[in-house]
C-alpha cells in the first residue's frame, strides 16, 4: 500500500509536467491550428535554462519559476513572428514539419553547448526531504509539483473562462466553427497565445529540473508522450489534455513500479485502446462517421 501511494505521488508529479505542457499544446493548436512539435524542445529549454541560471547567475529555483516562463514567452513570440506565421494559412502538416525542424536545431545547439551528460540540479530550497502524510512518507518536492501544476492549470482555466481574451481563445480551441460563425477573430491574439503555450512548456521544464535528468534530448521522448496524451484526451479539449496528462503520468508511474519491462509500452497501448473505443479522444468530439 505504501508503494502504491508512493507511485501515485510520483505519477501525479510527472502528470503535472505532462498536463501543463499538454495544456500549452492544446491552446496553441486552438488559436493557431498548429501542432507544435517543438514543444518538447521548449520544455527541455525550460529545464536547461533553470540549471544554467543557477550555475551562471546564482538564480534559485523560485526566481527561475517566474523568470524562465517569461523568457520562453519572449522566445515563443520571436519564433512565431519569424517562422510560424508564414505557414498559418496552409495545411497544418507544414507547421508540424517546421516545428520539427526547429526542435532538431534547438536540441543540437544545446547538445553542442552543454554536452550530452546531464546538467546537475539539486533540490530547491525549502522543498527538500520527506513529508509525512498519514502512514507514508512522500518527497516534499513531488507533492509540491502536483499542487503547483494543479494550481497553474486552474489559473489558466480561470484566465480562459473569466477574461475576454480567454473566452475568445477557448472558443477557438474548443469550437472553431462556432467561433468563426460568431465572427470571433483570434488573429490579434495568435502571437501572444503561441508565446503563452511555449511558456507553459517552460514551466513544465522548470518543474522537471530537480526531478529529471537535464539533457538536450530530454524533450524528445517527452513530445511523443505529449502527442499520445493529446490523442487520448482530445486535442480540441482543454480539460481533456489536462486530465489525460495526469492519467498518463499515473499510468507511467504504476508501470515503472509494477511492470517495469512494459512501463513505456503501456502508454501507447492505452492510446491504442482509446483510438479503438473513442477515436476522437476521451474528451474530444467527433460528430461525423
Amino acid at each position: 500500500m505504501d508503494a502504491f501511494i508512493q507511485y501515485t505521488a510520483q505519477g501525479l508529479a510527472a502528470g503535472g509536467f505532462y498536463a501543463l505542457a499538454a495544456l500549452g499544446l492544446a491552446v496553441i493548436f486552438g488559436a493557431l491550428n498548429v501542432v507544435n512539435f517543438a514543444h518538447g524542445a521548449f520544455y527541455m529549454l525550460g529545464a536547461v535554462l533553470t540549471a544554467v541560471l543557477l550555475d551562471v547567475a546564482g538564480i534559485n529555483f523560485w526566481v527561475a519559476l517566474v523568470l524562465v516562463p517569461v523568457i520562453l514567452f519572449g522566445f515563443g513570440i520571436i519564433i512565431e513572428r519569424l517562422l510560424v506565421q508564414w505557414l498559418l494559412g496552409l495545411d497544418n502538416l507544414y507547421s508540424f514539419l517546421l516545428t520539427f525542424g526547429i526542435s532538431l536545431v534547438l536540441v543540437d545547439v544545446i547538445k553542442i553547448r552543454y554536452g550530452v551528460s546531464g546538467l546537475p540540479y539539486g533540490q530547491p530550497p525549502g522543498l527538500e526531504g520527506l513529508i509525512r502524510i498519514g502512514a507514508v512518507q512522500l518527497p516534499v518536492y513531488q507533492v509540491f509539483v502536483f499542487v503547483f501544476s494543479v494550481l497553474v492549470c486552474l489559473g489558466v482555466w480561470l484566465l480562459l473562462a473569466k477574461t475576454r481574451v480567454g473566452v475568445i481563445v477557448r472558443a477557438a480551441t474548443e469550437e472553431p466553427e462556432r467561433a468563426r460563425a460568431l465572427g470571433i477573430n483570434v488573429g490579434l491574439w495568435v502571437t501572444p497565445v503561441f508565446g503563452f503555450g511555449v511558456a507553459l512548456a517552460g514551466i513544465a521544464g522548470v518543474l522537471a529540473a530537480p526531478f529529471r535528468a537535464i539533457t538536450a534530448t530530454m524533450g524528445s521522448s517527452f513530445i511523443i508522450i505529449l502527442f499520445a496524451i493529446v490523442v487520448i484526451g482530445g486535442l480540441g479539449s482543454i480539460l481533456g489534455s489536462v486530465v489525460a496528462g495526469f492519467l498518463v503520468g499515473l499510468v507511467e508511474a504504476y508501470g515503472q513500479g509494477y511492470a517495469s519491462t512494459f512501463s513505456q509500452i503501456i502508454i501507447f497501448v492505452l492510446m491504442a485502446v482509446v483510438i479503438l473505443v473513442r477515436p476522437a479522444g476521451l474528451f474530444g468530439r467527433k460528430e461525423s462517421a
Binding site: 491550428n33 469550437e175 472553431p176 468563426r180 495568435v190 480540441g236 460528430e287
Partner: peptide
C-alpha cells in the same frame, strides 16, 4: 503540395462539426 488539407474543409464548412480538428485557419 500547398493544398494538402484544403479538401478536408469540404464538409467541415457546411456542417457544424469539427472533424479531426482540421478547421480552417483564421
Amino acid at each position: 503540395a500547398d493544398r494538402l488539407a484544403a479538401p478536408d474543409s469540404v464538409t467541415a464548412t457546411n456542417t457544424a462539426h469539427d472533424e479531426e480538428g482540421n478547421h480552417a485557419p483564421r
